[in-house]
Design a protein around this nucleic acid. Structure first.
Lengths: 330, 330
DNA sequence: TTGTACGCGTTATCAC
DNA sequence: GTGATAACGCGTACAA
């Protein structure tokens, strides 16, 4: 690897001039520029980020911390972030925690040791307190989740309202026995979606039956098992609202196997409107989040924190919408 | 941000001692260790990667360059890489190119400027020549794809044989009009899978009909459109081998809409055995790759290159297997 | 327009 | 066991 020194020597100029060649080439005379150009080419020199980062004390890198990349939901969000980031001279790096707190702690080190300038979190296994402290010290924002009152900004849809509307739609369809398959984590989104579910029932004068509420993973199996559980009840529900398309697929899959007619008579709603919802048969009615916009907003929020220090955690809500398909219409 | 100097001053020791506190604490006396510990805590000091990386001229980071994370296929591969990497003190960072050559070039800068120690490629938009040059200069390996004779090592399944076996399975089922829906890129995997397809037909004394071969994206739509094309032929195929589960879903979706009985009579095979193949109805017969093992092997390959310089590109093949489901059995 | 010289935060070498 | 000090590669005042 060639260093700036070697290039300077080869070009017969000072290292400062070589540095200028890359950073403010217009300051150089045509001649010098050419001489440096040749030396650079000759030695195939490329300026080291190691030196530059140390000198400027920034890396121009943003870390996105994901629970997993197995969920295609994240893809477009990240694309959105990237577009905004690159437009501002930043690169986006992603890493996954697998939902493992240990692993997450490990990734945080990149923030502590300044390997990246800031980070975007989705879900986090940090406690509210821990995350608050983190947000106070490092540029950090949340996407699709948020801790109220944290110094970290956040971008999200209104999960309570979204769930409310989804369930209301089922009620409008005539269903009176509506179940919920939630996730068993303590994420704000899960709590809020359950809240929305309860509000809709209440509004229709229906009481919440605890046996209609299931909590588990975001996996396919959670859906399957939940359906079997529901069918084992004396009064099985006739509609199911789930907090993920993958769960909805599990529910529908199992329902069809049991000979249920999934559609208007037996309705199922998913969440996130992933490609799964579109491709499955029947197509799955699902709550769509504005993914690209979520990513863009999150990136902008983070970039803003690089400039000014946090006034207080800015909270941005973006609109969701219910995409109707055959799983509630067929 | 506290620096090592400030900590040294606060603890009344030299910076060297503070450094030792983090790197070789056993070298310090109980006393000193305690004094440093207190100073570190007091100032909430955390060693900067910027300084360390410069000094050691390594970052202990591996970059994984993906076309997209929307394909759940990659998830377990990356998990495998991470396990091996972390066990060796490396972290895995991923970034996506969206298949965009421009974007890929951008990510390569992280390699050039030593922001990461090495990289794992899946598909690449670099030409063979370009990739070869890259591999000569930087620690780089390929996963699931490979360029024969490149200095970069690679881990992959035997795509030709895998495709051959899949198609042979369709032939054994009695099909004589077997179509292929390939991708339209020039990746080695696509070329080899087509080769395998042709070999199987040949072995059964069947001629390859060009109208039975379609090339497009890995998307759902490619499958749908391909099926419609096939049905427009005078002699439509009765079985379709596709190079991705998402394509297979498109084919099946469209086929069912056309009233075809997908199963033994009209068979479809996918590739990669993603969760999609398991969850779709009918379940999709698919060629499974040993994902975790692919990731582990790729990581090991890269780590080895960090030690010794490339003898020549090592090529590792891992076993695939055909997972039979209803789309060829129902 | 160009060069000199310092410092960014760390680790490694060499003394003591 | 501990301290000085010289790198690492770069950017940027400041001087020329």
């Amino acid at each position: 690897m060639a260093t700036i020194k070697q290039v300077a020597a080869a070009a017969g100029v000072s290292v400062a001039t070589v540095s200028r060649y890359f950073n403010t080439p217009e300051q150089l005379s045509e001649q010098t520029r050419e001489r440096v150009r040749r030396a650079v080419e000759q030695l195939t020199y490329y300026p080291s980020a190691l030196g530059r980062n140390l000198r400027t004390s920034q890396t121009r890198k943003i870390l996105v911390i994901l629970p997993t990349i197995s969920n295609p939901f994240y893809s477009r969000i990240i694309t959105g972030m990237e577009e905004v980031a690159e437009k501002n001279g930043y690169s986006v790096l992603t890493c996954t925690t697998g939902g493992n707190p240990e692993s997450e702690k490990n990734k945080l080190k990149m923030l502590y040791d300044r390997f990246v300038d800031g980070a975007v979190f989705f879900s986090t296994s940090l406690s509210r307190r821990q995350f608050d402290r983190l947000a106070l010290e490092y540029p950090v924002v949340q996407c699709c989740e948020y801790q109220e009152g944290s110094a970290a900004g956040a971008v999200s849809i209104d999960n309570e309202q979204a769930a409310y509307e989804a369930v209301r739609y089922l009620l409008e369809l005539g269903h009176r026995r509506v179940a919920l398959v939630n996730s068993n984590n303590r994420f704000e989104s899960s709590i809020l979606r359950e809240k929305g579910y309860r509000r809709a029932l209440k509004e229709y004068g229906l009481s919440v039956r605890e046996e209609y509420i299931r909590r588990g993973t975001y996996g396919f199996h959670n859906g399957e098992e939940s359906l079997h559980h529901f069918l084992s009840l004396k009064e099985p529900p006739t509609a199911v609202f789930t907090v993920a398309d993958s769960i909805a697929v599990g529910v529908i899959h199992a329902a069809l196997e049991q000979g249920l007619q999934v559609g208007k008579a037996y309705s199922v709603i998913g969440f996130d409107d992933t490609s799964l919802a579109r491709m499955y048969r029947p197509g799955i009615t699902s709550v769509a989040q504005p993914r690209k916009e979520l990513g863009e907003a999150a990136a902008r929020l983070l970039l803003r924190r690089f400039q000014a220090s946090p006034k207080s955690g800015e909270l941005i809500f973006l609109p969701h919408r219910l995409v109707i398909r055959e799983s509630t219409e067929g």
